[in-house]
Design a protein around this nucleic acid. Structure first.
Lengths: 195, 195
DNA sequence: TCAGGTTGTAATCGGTTGATTACTTAGACA
DNA sequence: TGTCTAAGTAATCAACCGATTACAACCTGA
């Protein structure tokens, strides 16, 4: 070879994590069926064969990405709940959710997971994940069902405008809508989404 | 042939409509990348080749399905706005949106369209459709941005629980959440979704 | 140092999919 | 009735994708 790039080897556990991170981004951008294991491999800097062998199958990898995404939300929400601010718990939860935008792929992967409820393998994972989050904000944050539902609804709207990339639009109506969706701070939304 | 089923021919315009109806259902269930033109053809009762030839490509067909779905929402909302009830316009809009559940595929196709904002061909269609609906409920229904945003958020939650099929769950938390999402009438939600 | 397990890839295979082509057949109308 | 157009399909193709296999290179420790 002309270049001296010595392929860096990683222990299996670290490589696993790096594949999961890459897969989260690619699945978030293209969805489950639209993403290919080769795109994920390229994003992770390894071969397609190794991606498949590490997780056994594309489906298994997607399910693991889904579980991680739900786990990240749980962690962020629990941290927000236990924080001691002068803000309300709903405000803290909303802040925590918006901060997740910075980690490209999490919210978008979730959006795709939730849209595949009909799939026999992925559907149960999506339902369980969604209910887990619902129970968390209802039981641990103490929100009554109506407020919990409203909070989830706002989250789904954030997912949607994020997927549509309305925050990059120059349409004034789009910006007005995104501003409403993120609770007023359009600049922060944009900065987080820009990564 | 043993059966006498004489293949019924339809004029191109009618056949087009029947393909669009079938495609709406299949795309709604499986998403854009996950659906195949053969599944759509089978659902429409014709050959795969004819589906492709009628619309030129799978992508063109999907875009047309998307435009139709947005058009259906526009029609339903305009009708709700001009209706003269004792209810508020938001209540009428919410009712109109819920009624759209009965036409399997519309809301689920929309969910998939909105999740593909990154796609160079589909993204612009999704953005334009979403903004069209936003402007409709803001300008024609007269909702201030905050209320319009909240209304859209509730719609996105409905799309999500519909895609996840939480309304068919026997989990009490799922039912509580769906009940909240649809404004209290779980029975009607279920009946509409059952088709 | 060299043996063996671990990390990683090149090559390839079977199955699927969207699209194209060449061909049929139904039906309207002169 | 015969003809011509529009509706529709069977067959096939090239591209793609996930998965498998066989193999290479790296690193550790006895």
């Amino acid at each position: 070879m002309s270049t001296m790039e010595t392929r860096q080897r990683l222990p299996a556990a670290e490589r696993r994590e790096s594949i999961l991170a890459a897969a989260s981004v690619v699945f978030g951008d293209r969805g489950y069926a639209g993403a290919t294991t080769d795109q994920i491999a390229t994003a992770a800097g390894i071969s397609q064969a190794y991606v498949v062998r590490t997780f056994g199958s594309k489906e298994t990898l997607f399910v693991e990405v889904a579980r991680r995404a739900v786990g990240r939300i749980e962690t962020a929400f629990r941290s927000a709940i236990s924080a001691d601010d002068d803000r309300t718990v709903v405000q803290r939860l909303g802040q925590a959710y918006l901060d997740l935008i910075a980690d490209r792929g999490i919210l978008l992967s979730l959006l795709h997971i939730f849209s595949l409820g009909n799939d026999p393998a992925i559907g149960p994972v999506g339902r369980e994940g969604f209910l887990t989050i619902y129970r968390l904000i209802r039981d641990e944050a103490g929100l009554p069902p109506e407020e919990a539902s409203r909070f989830l609804a706002e989250g789904m709207l954030i997912n949607t405008v994020l997927a549509l990339q309305l925050h990059d639009s120059d349409d004034p109506d789009a910006l007005e809508l995104v501003t409403q969706a993120c609770g007023g701070d359009l600049g922060r939304f944009r900065a987080l989404a820009a990564g």
